[in-house]
Write a protein that binds this DNA or RNA. Sequence first.
DNA 1: GAAAAACCCGAACAAGCTGTCCATCATCAT
DNA 2: ATGATGATGGACAGCTTGTTCGGGTTTTTC
Lengths: 206, 206
Amino acid sequence: MPREIDRRAARTRKALHEALLALMLRKGYEALSVQDIIDEADVGRSTFYAHYTGKEDLLRSGFRMLREELKEAQSAARAGAEASHDDPLGFSTAIFEHAARYADHYRTMIGGRGGAVTENEIRLILSEMVRQELPPTLHDEAIPRDFVVQFIVGAFLTTLNWWFERKPKLPPSQVDAMFRSLVLDGLSPLIGGDRRSVDSQAAKSR
Amino acid sequence: MPREIDRRAARTRKALHEALLALMLRKGYEALSVQDIIDEADVGRSTFYAHYTGKEDLLRSGFRMLREELKEAQSAARAGAEASHDDPLGFSTAIFEHAARYADHYRTMIGGRGGAVTENEIRLILSEMVRQELPPTLHDEAIPRDFVVQFIVGAFLTTLNWWFERKPKLPPSQVDAMFRSLVLDGLSPLIGGDRRSVDSQAAKSR
DNA sequence: GAAAAACCCGAACAAGCTGTCCATCATCAT
DNA sequence: ATGATGATGGACAGCTTGTTCGGGTTTTTC
């Protein structure tokens, strides 16, 4: 049954994806040529174009697989701890642990190595995740929900990037704690002027 | 005296910079070729290479000018309102107003149109500014100062990007207020669970 | 096991971009 | 005005890209 994909084709595609990953870590996506990829993968020129229309097509193909996998991880994390309501941003832990496990993949995406396409893709994926986890209503209508989503996504990318560039690699739990401290409470607790009382949203001390 | 630069040279460079700016807004930096630039600027091929070693050199040259100008704006803002201590992040207003005035320039840098070089440059410039304005000591030593700086810079870029993509263009003051609300106080005031006093994740015992 | 189908490979091709060279010409200082 | 300076445009070889084609190999199907 030709229902399945030919083994040779599967082998070729896998080789191309691995070559792309390795080369992106070494040189970055934009500086890459198709020649480099087929040379690294040891694949003929026409073979490459028989599978993909160019290097961007190959890159996007990889993202389709990653997106599926990340959604699974999110579902699993949500099923494991259904504290979605009393613990906002609870899914951040799962993301940082996932990033620690697939550090190479994440490194190709974060920090400018991946080019504009990669940046866009990872932003879209994270945006969708955050949008699902964020409560549907916010207490302050002056701040659009859309903006809050982008803010959180940006904080994720910033944190991941800083984490990967760090010399001694911190454990995911510690990075997660720092991330949540800044995103949830802001940096008022860190600097002198705690101007929380200025706002009408007074501190509801227990 | 040929102390000053030849007028012809100045004219050529200005044309090249304007062409680069226009083309970056239209096609993005990475998709640009030297051919496109000299065609847009109506300049000969060898003329281009007589001034710059390539398109990246031209891009960086533009940044040298922008950096000077931004530092001036920062100094002016600091001189105008020397509330640097009782008003943290006070310089954010100046940045958003500057961005509103030079919207085209900023648009080329934010949102992936500028490529890796641009992203790096703007991050460096903003990092230096933030580092200067941030108090030297933080109340929580568990969070590195370096990480806080990157967090703020990322928030700036996220906010600027969201602002530019927005259909009806909001005034700088409003964007600034939203930015400061999120960065200073976090999103705890926005969502239900105000878990400020909770340090350990003992969410299950409830 | 054999025929048929699908796939991989290598070479060759036009088209486009890159960086450099040199002769020409406009602009500058004297 | 008149050399001297240096900006200018066009032509050049070298390289990468994306496509096409025929021959050879592996896989699937019967």
